[in-house]
């Protein structure tokens, strides 16, 4: 049986323009054979969720280095619920102080990868999360 190819939307919500991290993850996920859409920079949280729903992705990965992660992730999680898309796995990365991670997870962010994370760990997480969402 063919394995389902995970579909991922990677996005930069808010105003932060630094995209080194997100580009690394995009390349690693593609190297691992996944379908990855990139939103480009300066998206509102609502825009990102709407694209994620339209594209029916398994995982929505967001990268934020500006310090606005709490406010932005809260809006994304809320919009996902409003759209009945709470099953889309929300993944956050970027410049996030360790003590904020529990609060992000309480909002509904499934996993947080920060500076120093290994690409192989990110790829493994996305694969696992996608399979759990829709088993092949």
């Amino acid at each position: 049986m063919d394995k389902r190819v995970p579909r991922v939307l990677m996005g930069k919500p808010g105003l932060c323009g630094h995209d080194r991290g997100i580009m690394l993850v995009i390349m690693a996920l593609r190297d691992a054979g996944m379908e990855v859409i990139y939103s480009g920079r300066h998206n509102s949280p609502e825009q990102l969720v709407d694209i994620a729903v339209q594209e029916d992705v398994d995982v929505l990965g967001v990268s934020i280095l500006s310090g606005a992660h709490m406010a932005l992730c809260a809006r994304i999680a809320e919009r996902l619920k409003e759209q009945g898309a709470g099953d889309i796995v929300l993944l956050a990365g970027g410049f996030i102080p360790p003590e904020d991670i529990p609060a992000l997870k309480a909002l509904g962010v499934r996993e947080v990868f920060t500076e120093g994370a290994r690409l192989d760990d990110v790829v493994a997480f996305v694969r696992r999360a996608s399979e759990e969402r829709l088993p092949a």
């Binding site: 808010g14 105003l15 300066h42 509102s44 310090g67």
Partner: peptide, 11 residues
């Protein structure tokens, strides 16, 4: 501005 919400004074 609505796009500034949550980002004012951060960086």
């Amino acid at each position: 501005d609505p796009m500034a919400a949550g980002e004012v004074g951060l960086t």
